[in-house]
Design a binder for these strands. Structure first.
Lengths: 417, 417
DNA sequence: AGACTTTTTCCAAGCCTCGTAAAAAATGGT
DNA sequence: ACCATTTTTTACGAGGCTTGGAAAAAGTCT
């Protein structure tokens, strides 16, 4: 975007408030002094901003138990006020929808999962299903101890909804272009769901969203990395220069459909030789069984686990299938590394459970395809629970969006008694 | 980078000044009113900033000839004061160094080219050669009509030097990690050259720098696109989200070394199957001639032109060679498009001259490798003069850097008589 | 209990930008 | 030629946010 924008006092206020909230997201609990040090703001300014955020109900003073025994006046500990808002992270997959609701402090309040055959459904039905799920989540939320007066927390509602889905989503976050979980194309989700839940709704690709899960993790701060999902499909998310990569037209790094071998194996997308056509669950399975079909439904986790065990116990076909999968992934990573940079990889999905079978081939593939083999020793971090990762990511994304909105709105709200 | 930064009045001033300069870079000549409209600043603020920039000598009032005949007080036209600074864009290639010096308004003042065998040279020698070239450029600069008092322009010096080179450069812009033009590795250029010329020096990869050439072109504003160089080597530059992509570790999108075919043709880099091993000049030539060697020196332009003519006149081997080159490029682009997004391509180098031979295969390759063949119809813009493109890019990069510095420094300098 | 240390709060000052009003400079009509 | 009109530029007071220093607050240490 062109940088024609002016800046004025308003922008300064918004920016600095956001800096304070961002700092607090990282550390969880802080003090005015710590805010000043972390942000570079003067103590006066930091204190003033904290005061405003406290009065607006976003923050609250908390009693800290294990405070260090130092001389001098102890700082008053500040933390997010969970009750200030709620975020729902929803996930649409083949045959199921699920989600988690969290409070403004990021603490999970409830989770839910429903197996539904959404494949042939229309957009309207999908919106109803998602809306029901969200309201169910909200209902199951344990009312937080509303110790204060009673005017404390507004009527329970969800303030931000993030929908993660496999497939291609609109770049304006408004809906789904295409998804393997659905038959129909171009389904607008955000507008109708937003109308029903009275909350802002964003629809994103699950894989490209994943890096958001690490947004505030101290060990990932300022780090560029990639998230790699290897399951029925294969997808990637990128965090570059401190922000999560989002395409303009498509929505994601379609890692699974980067061509591996010209004219190679047939892929779901219709092309030949995609990475997914070697590394996706269905690809590994068909290679191991000598089949030629692409199953329409997702493959059960157990099936892949059994296949992995077979490979480990010497089944040659299975072994080769995993090896070729690893090779395709490795070459794909090598190609990405050549374009971008060698990056640490966070890996999830069924592939993460078969990493022992895949890793040697992956690293070898990188070695053969990247310049100087650079990146063949890239750190590999496994995350077995893909759902949790997606919920974390959606929640972080939603909270970041809320922080931005709250920073913008100069709400000098509810005078506490 | 983490967004812990605070903002204050200083930042506001810097940001807004930069917005004014950036606007002026785009339009060339402006007025206070136009600045206000373009930046969103109030007329008062815009006028005040322009006043400061005028007093500091960066801008000057100019007489505009073809001013429209409208009622009301005519706006005073403002433009960059060329004499305010000078930027040198230098280029290191196999067997030659060259460059262009431009004034602060971006107008070229002089160009120079020297054929030197730099291959075996040390860093010191290279610095001497570049320094000589730069000083020669400066000496050949026509003294601008110093109409004003005489205290007008400070003693002529270069204020910013940008060195573009094939190969890998340090991500801190300090020097060369490796280049096909040089034997030695890890040559620090910026520090010693900066010491000699008393100017800030930045060393960048030529291909990744190229998008900068379009930084202020109105038809490229806000546009994401890629620059593709196809010559002895193959390289790419990316402009994404309004900024030119720079890797953290490596310096560039090593498009030429993205693997095309696992285990394929031997590449200069030692790997097998790189795009360059099919699409580089040497690759096309060896395929056409049935040779097996990789020439150490660059291939003459004429040789490639003749080979192209041969292909056009029915030489099957040559025809196939170009076709396979186009195919490799197409698959490479398809892979990039799958990762990032379909992008318009600005193409330069010897490949741009053989585009009629390459284009069908390129587009076919994209069609076969990108999801839904998306991007097979991407706009292709040809730029035959690669040197001019690199000079433009280096100059734009240097000017942008100067704008930033000048915005930061609150120089309220030289009181004009 | 008093001295010391550290965190918060309070207040005047400084910098920008904004909005409005006044001044400046040219056109058009009579 | 003169006056009304239009448009750009300059001038001035106001508002918002940060800053730096001083004062107040709230503990620990001796």
């Amino acid at each position: 975007m062109s940088r024609l924008a002016k800046t004025d006092a308003d922008m300064v206020r918004v920016h600095n408030r956001l800096a304070v909230l961002d700092h607090l997201r990282r550390v969880g609990v802080t003090t005015r002094k710590a805010v000043s040090e972390a942000t570079g703001l003067s103590v006066s300014a930091a204190s003033a901003i904290c005061g405003t955020l406290l009065r607006s109900g976003l923050l609250e003073e908390v009693e800290e138990d294990g405070r260090s025994i130092r001389r001098g006046r102890p700082g008053k500990s500040l933390a997010f006020r969970g009750g200030a808002a709620r975020v729902a992270a929803l996930k649409i997959a083949v045959g199921e929808i699920s989600g988690r609701i969290s409070d403004y402090a990021g603490a999970p309040l409830a989770e839910a999962r429903r197996e539904v055959d959404i494949s042939g459904q229309t957009g309207d039905t999908l919106v109803v299903l998602l809306g029901d799920l969200a309201e169910d989540l909200l209902a199951r939320t344990i009312e937080p101890g509303t110790g204060e007066g009673g005017a404390g927390d507004a009527p329970m509602k969800i303030d931000k909804v993030v929908v993660a889905i496999q497939g291609k989503t609109h770049s304006d976050l408004s809906g789904i272009v295409w998804s393997p979980a659905l038959k129909h194309w171009n389904i607008g989700i955000a507008a109708p769901l937003s109308e029903r839940l009275l909350a802002d709704v964003s629809v994103l690709n699950d894989c490209s969203l994943m890096p958001e899960a690490f947004r505030w993790r101290p060990d990932f701060i300022g780090l560029d990395f990639a998230t790699l999902f290897v399951g029925f499909g294969v997808g990637m998310g990128l965090r570059l220069n401190g922000s999560t990569f989002q395409g303009k037209h498509s929505s994601a790094v379609e890692f699974g459909h980067i061509n591996h071998l010209p004219g190679g194996a047939l892929c779901r997308c219709g092309n030949r030789g995609c990475v997914e056509a070697y590394a996706g669950d269905y690809a590994i399975l068909r290679r191991a069984t000598g089949s030629d079909e692409i199953p329409a439904h997702r493959i059960a986790d157990e099936t892949m686990l059994r296949l992995g065990d077979a490979a480990r116990q010497g089944d040659e076909a299975a072994r080769t299938a995993f090896e070729e999968a690893g090779n395709a992934i490795g070459y794909g990573l090598g190609r990405v590394f050549t374009m971008i940079d060698p990056l640490p990889i966070v890996m999830t999905g069924s592939g993460a459970r078969a990493i022992d079978l895949l890793e040697p081939a992956i690293r070898n593939g990188i070695r053969e395809s990247a310049v100087d083999g650079l990146g063949a020793d890239a750190p590999l971090i496994l995350m077995e629970d893909t759902d949790a990762l997606v919920y974390d990511a959606g929640t972080a994304y939603g909270l970041a969006a809320l922080d931005g909105e709250f920073s913008r709105s100069a709400v000098e709200a509810t005078e506490a008694a």
